[in-house]
C-alpha cells in the first residue's frame, strides 16, 4: 500500500498526512469509507477524492453524481508519488492533515501553501482549522466530522464553489466546548467557558482606542504565532498595555513532552514581568493572548492553565482572547472567572 504521507498529483497539489504511521491508514480508510456512505454529492465527490488522495487505491470509490464529476475530471487520476516535499513543485494548495497529540485531540488544518510561497513565507499560511476530541482508533463520529469538513473543502477547492457556512462553524468552534449532535461532552472535561454576563474591563478597554489598537497590532504582528501581553493599571487608575514575548517555543524546545504545543497554538508569558511592572507601580488587571485561525473563545487549554483544578491562579484577573484569522484580527472577548460555575464567563460586548 502506498504511504499516504507524501502524495502529490502532477499539478503539485499535495496532500500531506503528518505523524501517521502505517496503522494510521486504517483511520484514513475509515475517513473515505464514511464519506462514501453519505448520499450527498459533495460527500460522494469527497469520498472519491479521498480514496485517491489518501490511499491512492480507490477506497471509497462511489458513483459520482454528474455535478461533482465535472469538477473532479479536472484532477489527473494518476497520482505521482514522490519522496518528499522538497521534490514537489510549488504547491497550488496544501491540505495538511496534522495529527498532533494534545491529549486525545487531533488537529486538521488546511493551509494555503501557494499564498505562503507567493509571499515568501517559509511556512504556508493556515487558512482553516478543525480540532476536536477523539480517541484511538477514530470513532464513526470522528470520521463523520472529518468527512463533513473534507467535503466542504473539496466543494470549495476542487469544485470551485464558495465554502459552505459549515467551514466557518467548524473553524471557529471551541474544540472542547460541550458537543451537540456529533460528540457528547466528556464527563471528565475541564470546566467550560460559559456565557454568564459580567461587566468590566472590556468596556473600559474599548473606551481607549489606542489601547485596543496596541493589543490588536501585537496580535496581528505575531501571526501565525500567538501573541500575549499584560493589561496593567497605574497608580492613577489608568489602563496600559504591555506586549510581552511568547516563550512557548522555548519551553517546547526544552521539554516537548510537558509542552507539546508550539507558539502556533499556545502561549507562555514571562511571569517575572508582572513583578517588574509592580516595581513600577503597575498592577495586573488582565492578560491578553491571541488565537491564530481560531475563534475568540476561552479554550479548554486556557481554562486548564488559568484555573487548574478549578482554582484560578490569578484571582481577579481578566483574560482577553483575540481571534486572528489569516493575519487579520476578527474578534476579541474578555473572560472572567466565575466562582459560582467554576468556569470562565464572557463579558458582554459593549
Amino acid at each position: 500500500m502506498r504511504d499516504p504521507r507524501h502524495v502529490f498529483d502532477r499539478y503539485g497539489r499535495q496532500l500531506l498526512v503528518s505523524g501517521v504511521d502505517l496503522a494510521g491508514q486504517g483511520r484514513l480508510h475509515a475517513f473515505a469509507a464514511v464519506l462514501a456512505t453519505d448520499a450527498s454529492e459533495v460527500a460522494a465527490a469527497a469520498a472519491e477524492a479521498a480514496g485517491r488522495y489518501l490511499v491512492g487505491a480507490g477506497v471509497g470509490r462511489v458513483a459520482i453524481a454528474s455535478a461533482a464529476r465535472d469538477g473532479l475530471q479536472a484532477i489527473d487520476r494518476d497520482l505521482v508519488l514522490l519522496d518528499g516535499p522538497a521534490d514537489a513543485e510549488p504547491p497550488v494548495a496544501h491540505y495538511y492533515f496534522a495529527q498532533r497529540e494534545y491529549g486525545a485531540s487531533v488537529d486538521v488544518a488546511v493551509t494555503d501553501a501557494a499564498a505562503g510561497w507567493r509571499e515568501g513565507l517559509a511556512a504556508p499560511a493556515r487558512v482553516a482549522t478543525l480540532r476536536y476530541e477523539t480517541g484511538a482508533p477514530a470513532s464513526l463520529e470522528d470520521a463523520v466530522a472529518i468527512g463533513a469538513f473534507a467535503a466542504d473543502l473539496l466543494l470549495a477547492d476542487v469544485l470551485g464553489v464558495e465554502p459552505l457556512p459549515a467551514i466557518a462553524v467548524c473553524d471557529l468552534r471551541d474544540p472542547e466546548a460541550p458537543r451537540t449532535e456529533r460528540q457528547p461532552a466528556r464527563q471528565d472535561a475541564a470546566p467550560q467557558a460559559s456565557t454568564v454576563p459580567r461587566p468590566g474591563l472590556l468596556r473600559e478597554l474599548k473606551e481607549h482606542q489606542a489601547l485596543v489598537d496596541a493589543v490588536f497590532a501585537d496580535c496581528a504582528a505575531n501571526y501565525p504565532r500567538e501573541a500575549c501581553g499584560l493589561l496593567l493599571r497605574d497608580a492613577a487608575g489608568a489602563l496600559c498595555v504591555q506586549p510581552t514575548p511568547n516563550l512557548q517555543d522555548r519551553y517546547h524546545a526544552l521539554d516537548p513532552v510537558t509542552y507539546p504545543r508550539t507558539a502556533r497554538t499556545a502561549y507562555k508569558l514571562n511571569e517575572r514581568l508582572i513583578a517588574r511592572a509592580a516595581d513600577q507601580g503597575l498592577s495586573l488587571v488582565g492578560i491578553y493572548h491571541s488565537h491564530c485561525d481560531a475563534g475568540a473563545y476561552f479554550s479548554g487549554e486556557d481554562v486548564r492553565c488559568a484555573a487548574p483544578g478549578g482554582e484560578p491562579l490569578y484571582p481577579g484577573v481578566a483574560w482577553l482572547v483575540v481571534s486572528v484569522l489569516g493575519g487579520t484580527v476578527r474578534a476579541a472577548e474578555m473572560f472572567h472567572f466565575d466562582a459560582e460555575s467554576g468556569g470562565f464567563a464572557a463579558e458582554p460586548q459593549p
Binding site: E226, L269, H291, D302, C305, A306
Partner: peptide
C-alpha cells in the same frame, strides 16, 4: 520565587 504560570492556547 514560586510563580503560577500564565499560559494557554487555542
Amino acid at each position: 520565587s514560586i510563580i503560577p504560570a500564565i499560559a494557554g492556547g487555542c
